[in-house]
């Protein structure tokens, strides 16, 4: 945090920004603004040299196979992201971001690729795509129910170095042991689009508190957000496909 402004890095939206994941940055910036805290969005493109150090929070979205392989190569460059994680800076990885931040993933051509290893999670292709609403009970204190939309082929197995972000109530999630997502320290990964922080303000605030290093003033959820969460976490909401 420099000059009382939280620096939010949107990492590789040109490679990993398939579906609304930029929204997570909008949500974080606005939730800070509502509390009178400034922020600066640092967009890191694949044309840049490396991931800049000194950001307070890193957001990594999802993308295609080819993009994921390119992203790993870029994110390893200079080691900036790994050092930030060592210092406890929060990182949010969505979908392909989860796979890239994990230990390994297998692309459509059957090739296994080494990930960044910032969470202990290995991904292989499943038999069919998991597409639909996903609801979990979060393992993170105070976060509660998580809601999102999943659309992925990957099935992810967690190693001892990570724990799930949530227990699946509805949907597929990682595809093993009713787990969804992966958490190691302040690195939080999930298959949830939605975007996840728009639908789950408590998770957004937890990441912000980690970024700032102190508790934030509570913020009342606007009525439409409350209603949306009720609608989306209702068990009888149809899960098509």
């Amino acid at each position: 945090m420099t000059g009382n402004r939280v620096r939010i890095a949107l990492v590789l939206p040109d490679l990993l920004g398939t579906y609304g994941d930029r929204g997570n940055a909008i949500v974080l910036a606005q939730r800070l603004r509502w509390r009178g805290i400034g922020s600066r969005l640092v967009t890191v493109l694949s044309s840049d040299d490396a991931v800049p150090e000194g950001c307070d929070l890193y957001l990594i979205g999802g993308g295609e196979d080819v993009a994921q392989v390119a992203a790993v190569r870029f994110l390893r460059r200079g080691g900036g992201l790994a050092r930030a994680v060592e210092h406890g800076v929060p990182v949010l990885g969505i979908c392909g971001g989860l796979q890239v931040l994990g230990t390994s993933f297998v692309t459509g051509d059957g090739q296994r690729h080494e990930g960044l290893g910032l969470v202990d999670a290995a991904t292989e292709p499943g038999r069919g795509r998991a597409i639909g609403e996903v609801t979990t009970q979060s393992t993170l204190g105070g976060v509660g129910m998580l809601t999102g939309f999943e659309n992925h082929l990957g099935r992810t197995t967690l190693g001892p170095g990570s724990h799930a972000l949530g227990r699946v109530v509805r949907g597929v999630g990682n595809g093993a042991e009713e787990a969804e997502g992966a958490v190691t320290g302040h690195v939080v990964c999930t298959y949830m689009h939605g975007p996840v922080l728009a639908r789950n303000p408590k998770l957004a605030d937890l990441l912000l508190e980690w970024a700032i290093g102190e508790p934030l003033a509570p913020l009342a959820d606007p009525p439409e957000l409350k209603a949306l969460r009720t609608e989306r976490t209702r068990v009888h909401v149809r899960n098509r496909k």
């Binding site: 609304g20 930029r22 929204g23 689009h193």
Partner: peptide, 13 residues
């Protein structure tokens, strides 16, 4: 609905 696509995450794009 089906013809729209079930995911509305694009609203944030």
């Amino acid at each position: 609905r089906e013809a729209d696509g079930y995911d509305v995450s694009w609203l944030w794009d």
